[in-house]
Amino acid sequence: MTAPATGPTAPAAPGSTEPPVAPQAPEPPAAAPATGPADGDLGEAGKAAIKKEREARQVAEKEKKALEARVKEFEDAQKTESERTAERIKQLEADAAKAKRYEAANAAGLSLSLAPRLVGNTLEELVADAEQLKQQLGSTAPAGPTPPPTPAPDRRQGGGPADTGGTMAAGRAAYEARKQRK
């Protein structure tokens, strides 16, 4: 509903069935948005205030986590043995479902990193979903992590093609032979 117009009304056209229209007051100009210095132009006081606020927030978040832990501890203490058992069973079922997904991915030859994407309640359903996902991916999915490449031999390292025998005399002779070639 609109509010009734206040003030004088403009007369309707003669012979018109429309009600008279009240002239509308001009709308006040919209407030200009507050503009301040850009982020980089805060000045030392602004930067110090932001730093102080961030530190206070970190302290508050730590306190919040500590209080949440205390509340959880209190709630756990208030639980009955059957509630604790039910919660433990729920956690074990979730772990078993996760293990089934990884088992299905392994059975299908799918990368284990894709195991969380599998959907199904039984191992057979999960294996079927893994096979379907493997077909959709085609050969683009790696079967697993690739082993690092074997480095090429470097002839500058280790012994050369000639064995010097390992004695001082043999080493001296090899040195003299190299020296004379130059």
Rank of each mutant, 00 (worst) to 15 (best):
146 T>M: 13
67 L>T: 10
42 L>K: 04
166 G>H: 04
107 A>Y: 06
93 E>Q: 12
70 R>G: 02
46 G>S: 06
80 T>C: 01
82 S>K: 14
18 E>G: 01
73 E>P: 01
84 R>Y: 00
179 K>N: 10
156 R>G: 10
127 V>Q: 05
115 A>P: 04
135 Q>D: 12
146 T>Q: 13
33 P>R: 02
7 G>A: 07
45 A>N: 08
29 P>F: 01
47 K>R: 15
175 Y>W: 14
119 V>Y: 02
41 D>M: 11
151 P>S: 11
102 Y>Q: 01
177 A>P: 03
141 A>L: 03
59 V>S: 10
178 R>C: 14
122 T>R: 06
98 K>Y: 07
105 A>D: 03
87 E>I: 08
52 K>L: 14
161 P>R: 08
159 G>Q: 15
5 A>Q: 02
55 E>A: 07
100 K>D: 10
79 K>T: 05
177 A>Q: 09
57 R>G: 01
179 K>Q: 13
8 P>L: 12
152 A>T: 10
160 G>R: 00
42 L>M: 09
8 P>F: 05
131 E>R: 05
84 R>T: 07
182 K>Q: 14
93 E>I: 09
43 G>K: 03
48 A>H: 03
105 A>I: 08
21 V>T: 14
62 K>A: 15
62 K>N: 11
48 A>V: 08
77 A>Y: 09
